[in-house]
């Protein structure tokens, strides 16, 4: 072999990691990371909602095309450092690592549906709910298969509670178990006892190591046991007697609505402009009437809506929303 050519090839590889490597085109399912096709030439992706195409220089593509490696054993992963998709061996071990040593702040105004990790603090309950938004964590497509978590360092997902905008002033840190978080999608942790005595909740910030890109948080007095919190997704919801974020009292066919829903929680309505309530008496089969409340009104602390039917003595209020609970305690007629 010509030694000069060999040295030149080495130099080229140092400058360009893709030197002398063939480029492959991989079409895969966006949701599952499952590979559909691998080819040497770009493919036309017809169903762009479901599939996407990426380029790869990974030599394993050649082995798969030639039938020397099984496609079933490979999947797509998100390379956090290079921020690209690449093909890799499917595994039951989730490898998480920090991008750099800087702490990532949690944004208070971030929409939870757009975040990757979202934290809800319930200061009266003295609990903290950590949610991993698996739809947004694109790199972790095989979450259901994960049985082990491997990380280069411990406490990689821990949440640090600090004085507002001052990461050096640590108030408390919350240990998060990555396996539980990624398997269940959420983790409810008790805050340190007596934390309320030493923390001014309106004067804190949250930080975490920079594993993901979007961290968000919200503060509430106590948890509302809505469908989202319970992890259920019933098609219809009905009024409950527990603490709720909407309370409806009716006097003389006027519904007085008390709402705890804040502007930052507008995502509860999934882009809809109003919420419809169907009212039955005693059982679901006894329909009494229905009314519609614009979202803008539900974002106000107090509001009233005129009803065109008589409020029943034993109301069953039915509606479609996974984030809202309604109670009619104190409803009078």
């Amino acid at each position: 072999m010509d030694i000069n050519k060999h040295l030149q090839a080495q130099r080229n590889e140092g400058i360009n990691p893709h030197y002398n490597k063939r480029k492959y085109y991989i079409v895969f399912e966006k949701e599952s990371g499952k590979i559909k096709t691998i080819s040497n030439t770009p493919q036309e992706v017809k169903d762009t909602e479901r599939y996407m195409q990426t380029e790869s220089w990974n030599p394993v593509c050649k082995r798969i095309i030639k039938g020397k490696a099984s496609l079933k054993r490979y999947g797509m992963i998100w390379d956090l450092v290079n921020e690209t998709w690449d093909i890799d061996f499917r595994s039951t071990t989730l490898i998480i690592e920090s991008k750099h040593n800087k702490l990532e702040p949690f944004r208070e105004d971030l929409d939870p549906t757009r975040s990757e990790i979202f934290v809800k603090i319930f200061y009266e309950d003295e609990t903290i709910l950590i949610e991993a938004n698996r739809n947004n964590i694109r790199g972790l497509k095989n979450l259901s298969d994960i049985t082990e978590i491997a990380s280069s360092e411990e406490k990689l997902l821990d949440v640090y509670i600090t004085k507002k905008n001052d990461p050096d002033y640590l108030i408390s840190n919350i240990s998060v178990d990555p396996l539980t978080l990624f398997k269940d999608g959420k983790q409810l942790i008790n805050l340190p006892t007596h934390i309320n005595e030493k923390v001014d909740w309106n004067n804190i910030s949250l930080y975490a190591k920079s594993v993901f890109s979007n961290y968000g948080w919200a503060l509430s007095a106590s948890a509302v046991r809505n469908q989202d919190y319970l992890g259920t997704k019933r098609i219809l919801q009905q009024n409950v007697s527990d603490k709720s974020n909407i309370n409806i009292r009716v006097v003389d066919n006027v519904a007085y609505i008390d709402s705890d829903i804040r502007d930052s929680e507008v995502y509860y309505f999934d882009g809809r402009t109003s919420l419809k309530f169907v009212v039955c008496n005693n059982s679901i089969d006894e329909l009494v009437g229905a009314f519609e409340v614009p979202v803008g009104i539900l974002l106000q602390k107090e509001s009233r809506v005129n009803l065109n039917f008589n409020w029943p003595k034993k109301p069953i209020v039915v509606y479609k929303n996974n984030y809202i609970t309604v109670n009619t305690n104190g409803a009078t007629q």
């Binding site: 259920t232 997704k233 019933r234 098609i235 005693n282 059982s283 679901i284 089969d285 006894e286």
Partner: peptide, 22 residues
Amino acid sequence: MWNRWTDRLNTWTSNGAKVKIQ
């Protein structure tokens, strides 16, 4: 795909022990 069918479906009861699913 649900762990429990009660996570997804509504159940209703009314007088005379009538039970409805959805």
